[in-house]
Design a protein around this nucleic acid. Structure first.
Lengths: 210, 210
DNA sequence: GTCAGGATCAACCCTTTGGTTGATGGCGGC
DNA sequence: GCCGCCATCAACCAAAGGGTTGATCCTGAC
């Protein structure tokens, strides 16, 4: 048998970290070498410790987002691979994680065997996607016009949060004209003609955070 | 030392159940006697097994909701107490859980010590609320006009579904003037001044379907 | 190098939404 | 019976949002 797979657990919930530790401890070829309760700490630990696979949550309370941490970790040439492990399966989160360089994307309701298999796949450099997630990615590939650009998603998210065009323009340091332009593009892509309808459709399709 | 506190864990995530088991196992006066992956099974186990405290998640995938299970369990006169343990702190969830008879309401990001203290409090019949949750309840008490009427909720739900005032008026067989009146009342009650903001606030407070 | 697409902004016009005032009828509680 | 709340509608005005055209700049793909 080869050397054990060295793991870093990054999740802001102590209970989840304990659960992952307990579940993964039953696998003899796994070794949990560190835990991080914040994304910032995960980045620091991934740099300092010798780690093969990072199990990364996306939602941390305040501060850095899991996707940003994933990008920071995978930016290093000889760094560990990142396996995203989260509760949600929205398109926006999945895309952000994959673009940030995540090797896999699992949902937290995955059974332990699936989790272990995904960790081994990730350690071997293979990607590991939950079936739901894989389906969403395939759906997206097939539907060409449904992909919102990053900026469009950002604007739409603020609309969903209840901000007016003016508030959005201030928040993002844009003119109102630009905000309107982005929204018009969004309406076209989603086949709607109002901001509320755009939010409803985007929410239904998982294009924005719920 | 008295008899150990007998616990039932109800959560659809295997990882979370393992985490709770691991965290609670460090306390000598706790004993986890059963686990349930669905709300239905939690109700059945709470009836069959001798249990002091049920740690209950609210979100299960399909099927019964945690609040309904809580109501079913606490309806029995000599049944266990229920300590709700969830990720979200929306008003609707908290209210539903408290109305269903939950003894406490904790968030999953609680540290282990807080969790253990809450379990002991619940077993002793004392209520255990996370600080955030307690604040929300107090806020709600202080704010008198937060209850939307049935018709207002109905209109707001259609707004959240992306309909325009005209579409809503047709759907509900009203004039647009009436729809506007309802919405203006909603804005006043929620302290906002646009439909999208109203939807955002109502969603955050759990006043409408998500 | 060209070309497509993203991101940015302006000026224009029209529609929808928001805010106000006022009015009617019904229902439940004191 | 009266008061308060809900539900319904009208008319009006101001403000925000939506639709269009057109333009610049940049980046990545072929």
């Amino acid at each position: 048998m080869s050397a054990p797979i060295r793991l870093l657990l990054a999740d802001d919930h102590p209970v989840v970290r304990a659960g992952l530790r307990a579940v993964l401890a039953t696998e003899p070829d796994f070794e949990v070498v560190a835990e991080a309760a914040t994304a910032e700490r995960a980045v620091a630990l991934a740099e300092r410790e010798r780690v093969d696979v990072v199990l990364m949550d996306l939602q941390f309370g305040p501060g850095m987002h899991g996707a940003a941490a994933t990008a920071a970790i995978t930016a290093r040439p000889d760094g560990p691979v990142v396996l995203v492990l989260t509760t949600y399966d929205s398109d926006a989160d999945i895309l952000a994680a994959v673009e940030a360089g995540a090797t896999g994307y699992l949902l937290k309701d995955a059974p332990p065997e699936e989790l272990a298999a995904a960790v081994r796949a990730a350690a071997a450099g293979r990607s590991a996607l939950a079936p739901t997630v894989a389906n969403r990615l395939i759906d997206r590939m097939r539907t060409p016009g449904v992909a919102l650009s990053r900026r469009e998603t950002e604007v739409l998210q603020l609309v969903a949060d209840g901000l007016s065009n003016q508030q959005i323009s201030l928040r993002l340091h844009l003119s109102q004209a630009t905000v309107k332009t982005h929204l018009v593009h969004v309406y076209g892509k989603l086949g709607v003609d109002s901001r509320t309808a755009a939010v409803a459709v985007a929410r239904a399709r998982g294009l924005i955070r719920r």
